[in-house]
Amino acid sequence: MNDKMQMHRLIEQKRIEGADKKPRYGMRKLTIGTVSCLLGFASLLAFTTPNFSQAAESGNTGGGNNSLITGTVPKENKSSSEEGEKLIAPRDVSGELENLKMVISGNTNENATTIHPLRSSAPDDNTTDQEMRYKIAFDIDKNTVKEGDYFDVDLSKNVNLYGSTTKYSDISTKLYIGNDVVAKGVYDVEKHKMRYTFTKNAEKYGRFHQEISEPLFIDPTEVPFDTKDLPVQATIGKHKAEKKVAIDYRVPVAEGEADIDSNSVATLYDINE
Rank of each mutant, 00 (worst) to 15 (best):
F198R: 00
P231Y: 10
H192F: 03
Y196P: 05
P231W: 06
V181G: 15
T199I: 10
Y205E: 10
Y196M: 09
V223K: 08
Y196V: 00
N201M: 14
F198Y: 09
T227N: 12
F225R: 12
A183C: 13
K184L: 04
A234K: 03
L216T: 09
D219T: 13
N179V: 08
E203N: 13
V245K: 06
I247C: 01
K193A: 13
K191E: 09
Y205D: 02
P215L: 09
K228T: 10
G237W: 08
K191G: 07
Y249H: 02
P224K: 03
E190Q: 13
K244M: 12
I247M: 00
F225P: 00
I236K: 02
Q210S: 12
V181F: 12
L230G: 11
H209A: 04
A183I: 14
V181K: 13
P215V: 05
N179T: 15
K204Q: 05
V189K: 14
K238P: 03
K238Y: 06
V223N: 06
H239T: 15
V223H: 02
V182H: 11
T221L: 04
H239S: 14
T221S: 01
A234Q: 08
G237T: 09
D219A: 04
D248L: 09
E190D: 15
K193W: 05
P231D: 14
T199G: 10
R207I: 03
K193I: 13
P215G: 01
A183D: 14
I212F: 06
G185F: 11
T235Y: 08
A234G: 12
D248M: 10
I247V: 11
P224V: 05
L216R: 00
I247R: 05
V232Q: 03
F198H: 04
A183L: 14
E190W: 03
P215D: 03
L216F: 05
D219N: 14
A202M: 03
K240D: 02
V182K: 10
Q233N: 13
L230H: 09
G237N: 02
A246D: 15
L230M: 11
I236F: 03
H192R: 00
K191Q: 13
E222Y: 05
F208T: 00
I236V: 11
H209C: 00
Y249S: 00
N179A: 12
R207Q: 14
P231M: 07
A202P: 01
F198I: 08
Q210E: 11
T199L: 08
